[in-house]
Amino acid sequence: MEAGRRAVGGWHWYGMALAGLVVLAGCGRGEIKPQAADLQRAETLRPMDAQLARKYERSCLICHGNQASQAPLAGFAPAWEARLEKGMPLLLTHVRDGLNAMPARGYCNDCSDQEFTRLIAFMSGGEQGGAR
């Protein structure tokens, strides 16, 4: 009987140790935070197309170039991955209707869906931009 208790107790501790490892393994998978270089890049990055850059500067930059806004930073791909996985049609709906703190149309009332698509592609790192 004593041996049986030790075996059960041993399995109990084994299970507890395994559960602890699983919890600890999950701790390292937090959200990737932007570093100083990412913040500086977001502040200076602009679309290559001059007209799109003007619209970006007057409508998107104030939030997507500033970490304090909690909007995904322009050029910081980890912040965009989960959003892009949902697909461009849903992202366009969120832009048109607004989402959380983002106002409808992101303050760009004269942007077309094509321009919104290009702006999202630029901010998510899919379209080339340059620093100014």
Rank of each mutant, 00 (worst) to 15 (best):
2 E>R: 09
3 A>Q: 13
4 G>V: 13
5 R>G: 08
5 R>V: 15
6 R>F: 09
6 R>Q: 11
7 A>D: 12
9 G>D: 04
12 H>R: 09
12 H>P: 00
14 Y>K: 11
17 A>S: 07
20 G>P: 03
21 L>P: 03
22 V>S: 08
23 V>A: 13
26 G>M: 07
27 C>H: 00
38 D>M: 04
42 A>I: 13
45 L>F: 03
47 P>S: 04
48 M>L: 15
49 D>L: 08
50 A>S: 13
51 Q>M: 09
52 L>K: 05
55 K>I: 14
59 S>M: 02
59 S>D: 03
60 C>V: 11
62 I>K: 08
63 C>W: 00
63 C>N: 06
63 C>L: 04
66 N>R: 11
72 P>N: 13
73 L>Y: 08
75 G>F: 02
79 A>G: 11
80 W>E: 06
83 R>D: 01
84 L>H: 10
87 G>Y: 04
88 M>Q: 08
90 L>A: 14
91 L>M: 12
92 L>F: 03
93 T>L: 14
93 T>M: 14
98 G>M: 07
99 L>E: 01
104 A>K: 01
105 R>F: 05
107 Y>L: 15
109 N>Q: 09
112 S>V: 09
112 S>P: 05
115 E>P: 02
115 E>A: 05
117 T>S: 13
118 R>Q: 09
121 A>N: 11
126 G>R: 15
127 E>L: 09
127 E>C: 01
129 G>L: 02
131 A>H: 04
131 A>C: 11
132 R>H: 10
